[in-house]
Design a protein around this nucleic acid. Structure first.
Length: 503
RNA sequence: CGGGGUGUGGCGCAGCUCGGUAGCGCACCUGCUUUGGGAGCAGGGGGUCGCUGGUUCAAAUCCAGUCACCCCGACCA
């Protein structure tokens, strides 16, 4: 056969077709597939396992900050949605509406019947329906704050679905809180915003730029929207989590009032915040390579796959199997990153070893162990770490691996994060000061990246940029505080803004 | 929602212009050989060609409609 070409497990490669690569990664890792329902996906066990791990850790952090879980209806009366003007306008175009409650058989076909007197919408978010409950729950300042979180599915009738990034139905968590004062609600908004940032950086190994959204990018009905923006491998930005200060807008719409100490009836201050299965998309586009997904150990459903290399010799095979099971059991008693249990899986499926190995690589499991007769002889293991070349085995004594596994997992976690930080830093341009240079930078094909530049805060300049497919992602929390000129119009400006193309 | 493209076994594709009843690579199953870094040979299973209707003796192929996916745009807390 002669020279083997460098073969990648995923085709097309990122270089050849980024979007095709993304879809191929999702398919080859067996994470999800588009269903036959427009824009809706089936999340398969490997993808859902990642989501469950996200849920577990986020849920812990949400509860650690004093919130409790509850559940509210999927259906929202149209009249509720109508109550907040900006909210209606923001969501009207992507609402699924339920108009009937029955089917009847007619000419051999099922037809909707029993038209509802007032239609229901499928929640695109739950501010209004939760607000209606809150209005009942709250009488006095002594009832505050109310700190509620909900894990749910929501529906937004998107025009251009993309698996995990923008689907018609998706899973998320939405926090909704009520406070007596403006200050306390702002504090809450910022607190949860920080929870998201820490979670995404520590567990998903994705560095983010925290910032505030411009007025036009705000959540419909919010006073302030905070966002964490991550940079994908193609340089585009992905909004990965948002936290909103809603002021009294929704309290007024839903009549969330309380008797203050003074005896006055006052409107409360509310917040909401959420992250969704979109984070899985962020994970894929942050860390994966041309051999498939790479899952940071802290979020991986399994950390170590143990693949036996069996021979046509039952006696030898029995030894290999026993050896593998011992190692699996030892690993499963171990921890990494402090107290996170190591999840090791003995892969005794009947597939060929080499196919099992590549299957795991494409799924992005952090470590694949291959164990054959020679390893049993020598008391060793062959280690494939996903942060290294998929063809480089490292042979090491069994005990060294078992005791060192946690360190390897931690190294992998760190290496993914470091690589993502390096990319973010390298491709965040701070030397763009005029409109011409800005457009020139983003007219390039391929890696575009972020521009951190001055903005005069005028909607005109923002619109001008938006018409060029660029967006102002956020006004970073970390401001230089220096004076300068708006990168668009050249006027005096103090505010730093992140400009980028976005998903 | 506008423009473009595509739907053929699990995946990737050919066949369609010029209608004659489906093929290739990978994967899968069996056997033999091989045996720790995507093995070889031989045999085999699996698709009513997205769906509906029309034209025709005959439709994957032509026509109409419809659904879905992909790309570009608009839209997107």
């Amino acid at each position: 056969m002669g020279n083997k070409k460098a073969r990648t497990a995923i085709s097309p490669t990122r270089e050849e077709d980024y979007s095709g690569w993304y879809q191929s990664v999702v398919r080859e890792a067996d994470m999800a597939e588009m269903s036959h329902v427009r824009g809706c996906m089936v999340i398969k066990p490997w993808g859902y396992g990642i989501w469950e791990n996200m849920q577990r850790e986020l849920d812990r952090r949400i509860k650690a900050t004093g919130h409790e879980n509850a559940y509210f209806p999927l259906f929202i009366p149209l009249s509720y949605i109508e109550k907040e003007a900006a909210h209606v306008e923001g969501f009207a175009k992507e609402m699924a509406v339920v108009t009937h409650h029955r089917l009847v058989s007619k000419d051999g076909e099922l037809k909707p019947a029993g038209e509802l007197e007032s239609p229901l919408v499928v929640r695109p978010t739950s501010e209004t329906i939760i607000g209606a409950s809150f209005a009942n729950w709250i009488q006095s300042y002594k009832d505050l704050p109310v700190l509620i979180n909900q894990w749910a599915n929501v529906v937004r009738w998107e025009m251009r679905p993309r698996v995990f990034l923008r689907t018609t139905e998706f899973l998320w968590q939405e926090g909704h809180t009520v406070h007596a004062t403006h200050e306390e609600a702002v504090e809450e908004t910022e607190k949860m915003f920080k929870v998201y940032q820490d979670f995404v950086e520590e567990f998903l190994a994705i560095p983010v730029i925290p910032g505030e959204k411009s007025e036009s990018e705000r959540f419909p009905g919010a006073i302030q929207t905070f966002t964490i923006e991550a940079m994908m491998q193609d340089g585009k930005a992905l909004q990965s989590g948002t936290s909103h200060y809603l002021g009294q807008n929704f309290a007024k719409a839903s009549k969330i009032q309380f008797a203050a100490e003074s005896g006055e009836l006052e409107y409360a201050y509310t917040t909401s915040w959420g992250v969704s299965t979109r984070l899985i998309g962020a994970l894929i586009m942050s860390h994966s390579d041309d051999d498939g997904l790479r899952v940071p150990p802290r979020i991986a459903p399994w950390h170590i796959a143990i693949v036996p290399i069996l021979r046509n010799d039952e006696e030898v095979n029995a030894k290999i199997e026993a050896y593998c099971k011992e190692i699996t059991a030892e690993l499963n008693k171990s921890y990494f990153a402090g107290n996170q249990p190591i999840m090791a899986k003995y892969d005794d499926r009947q597939y060929k070893p080499v196919n099992k190995k590549w299957g795991w690589i494409k799924k992005g499991i952090p470590i694949v162990l291959e164990i054959g007769p020679r390893d049993v002889e020598n008391g060793s293991v062959s280690v494939l770490a996903r942060d290294k070349n998929a063809r480089e085995y490292e042979n090491m004594p069994r005990d060294e691996f078992v005791t060192g596994a946690s360190a390897i997992l931690e190294r992998i976690q760190k290496s993914y994060y470091d690589a993502a930080v390096a990319r973010l830093n390298e491709h965040t341009h701070t030397d763009i000061h005029d409109y011409k240079s800005l457009l020139k930078l983003f007219s390039k094909k391929g890696m575009t990246g972020f521009v951190n530049a001055k903005w005069c805060e005028s909607i005109e300049c923002e619109d001008k940029v938006t018409s060029k497919k660029l967006t102002i992602r956020c006004l970073p929390i970390e401001q230089s505080g220096t004076e300068g000129h708006c990168v668009v119009c050249g006027a005096e400006a103090k505010m730093d803004a992140i400009f980028a193309m976005a998903y």
